[in-house]
Design a binder for these strands. Structure first.
Lengths: 330, 330
DNA sequence: TTCATAAATGAAACGGGTTTCAAAAGAATG
DNA sequence: CATTCTTTTGAAACCCGTTTCATTTATGAA
């Protein structure tokens, strides 16, 4: 690989001048610039990014840490972040940490050691939280919120409201026997959804019926079986996310339980897949795009949320589709 | 950030000794090692990865370039590659190039400039192919194959056989009016699938009916409409991939066309989603895991496929599920 | 105890751009 | 034409681990 010194020799100038031509930091005489440019062209010179970022202490890179690359919610988020970052001349490095604290730690350390310009973390791990504060690069936490706020920026949705909306919609669609498949409690994102559901039920004299479940498909399948056994009367299900909702549907379908005629179903997240499967899934929409774009903005703003304080909440909304009864048929 | 020289001072040794303790390259006296370790601990020292890789010319990183992070086929592939790489002490950097040649180029250049130890590219872009040869880092092309083979290793599946299997299965299930939704021709992966289908039809006296379609969901939706219009007699559909198959199903479902009773459907890829949706999708299984793991092996083997030549083909198989008639009901 | 080997250790160079600082060249003023 | 202020430009230091190479220290044999 040709280096900057080779180019300099070829062009008959010093390495410093070559650097200046490349970066446009200082004006260079037209004839010399010309020679340098030609030498670069001829030798196919590409500046070594490692050397550059060693000095600059910036790598034009934003780290993105997600718990699972298999969950479409996170890949969608990563995709927007990617697009937003590229628009601003940054690239992202995606770390897929398989829900594993050690891998999260390792990713963080690597990013720090690699002079990343910031990190966007989608982690519900409270233990990691504390470590986050030790790094001096900007950190933004998305899709999570903690009591002990160590980091400057938390971006999350109004999950509580989402839980309420789901319960409200099912009730409005005629359900009287709601069951909530809630995510593991202790995780804010899961808990808030549940509490929204719970409060709505309490306020409207509905008995709250709950089943607990991990966020993935496999867990959704087995939990649904359990749910049907424990609550045979059920006529409305609030799932903790869309992937689980899809697995719920799968079981119902297998048992020939009609959706939405016998049981109505509401998911959470509104991933693309929700409107792609048949029947289309009624779900709580999260503004994933807006959240992702904002995360990048905040990182490039040194990790600070300007005026709003240390956290920013995004609104959710209910998208009625085919797994609940439409207005017309009510 | 504390540097190795700070640690050295604190421990009363030279930076060289600290480096040796960290890397275990040369034995260090027990008492000094002890002091160094304590100093590292106290100062929370983490070696700067950039400086390290500048010297080592290796970053323990494998680049993975995929055309779309939204297509589950590629995220699944990335996930295995990630796991396989981590097992061997490497990390991956995922580049999501949005099917864009310029972004592919940029990704490649960045990887080269970042001292990546190898690149795994899932690209059907022939133009990129040629450039690939210019880089001296190991490159493995997955899910593609070219006439002009510039790179040392191509990993791909027996797509042709997949096309045959799909046609054969539909025929065995009683279909007489097959239509193939083929991917954009010119791409080997798409063309081979189609040719398998075509040859089977010719050999068995079936008229070949074809419709062309991009690999994504939106294209699948509109193409299905067109298909039904052009071939109202259709009773079996071979889709170019699972995402398209899902969109086909969506349209059929919307039109109240029963699957598999009126029309049977075969996808391609066997992404997880295929068995997660309802009804479960009959599809051609690609050994994504094996391919991903092999890709990592080859990279760490300097990008060479040892004996087998410059390419390795993986077998496909048909997985009968719910969108075609099962043996029992035939 | 002494000389020869082997092992541990530090000083300095290295990798490859970038930037500082001072010298050199050019432009402007008197 | 001399003098001063600008603008270019190159030499060298820098970023920070790693490694070479020579020196020091330890080990073993004589």
């Amino acid at each position: 690989m040709a280096g900057i010194r080779d180019v300099a020799r070829q062009a008959g100038v010093s390495p410093a001048t070559v650097s200046r031509v490349i970066n446009g930091t200082t004006p260079v005489a037209a004839d010399k610039r010309e020679r340098v440019l030609r030498a670069i062209e001829e030798m196919g010179f590409v500046p070594n990014e490692v050397a550059r970022s060693l000095f600059k202490k910036s790598s034009k890179t934003i780290g993105v840490i997600i718990p699972s690359i298999r969950n479409p919610y996170f890949t969608q988020l990563a995709d927007v972040i990617d697009a937003a970052a590229k628009e601003r001349g940054y690239r992202i490095v995606l770390y897929n940490v398989h829900h594993d604290l050690d891998q999260e730690r390792a990713a963080l350390q690597m990013l720090a050691a690699a002079n990343a310009d910031g990190v966007i973390v989608a982690s519900n791990n409270e233990a990691l939280q504390e470590e986050l504060a030790h790094y001096q690069m900007p950190v933004v936490v998305v899709d999570a919120l903690f009591q002990t706020r160590q980091v400057n920026a938390y971006l999350y949705c109004d999950y509580y409201q989402g839980g309420r909306l789901a319960a409200e919609h099912l009730t409005a669609c005629g359900c009287r026997n709601l069951v909530c498949i809630r995510g593991v409690q202790g995780l804010y994102t899961a808990q808030a959804r549940y509490e929204g559901y719970r409060d709505y039920c309490r306020e409207h004299g509905l008995t709250e019926q709950v089943v607990e479940c991990d966020y993935d498909f496999e867990a959704g399948l087995s939990m649904t079986e359990e749910l049907l056994e424990r609550f045979p009367q059920v006529d409305g299900i609030v799932a903790c996310n869309d992937m689980v909702a899809i697995s719920v549907y799968k079981i119902l379908h297998k048992r020939n339980i009609a959706v939405p005629d016998q049981i109505q179903l509401v998911g959470f997240d509104d991933i693309h897949l929700a409107s792609l499967i048949s029947p289309e899934l009624t779900t709580i929409h999260q503004p994933i795009d807006a959240m992702g774009r904002r995360a990048v903005e905040v990182i490039l703003n040194e990790g600070h949320l300007p005026k709003e304080g240390r956290r920013q909440s995004f609104p959710v909304s209910l998208v009625p589709r085919e797994t609940t009864r439409s207005k017309e048929s009510r």
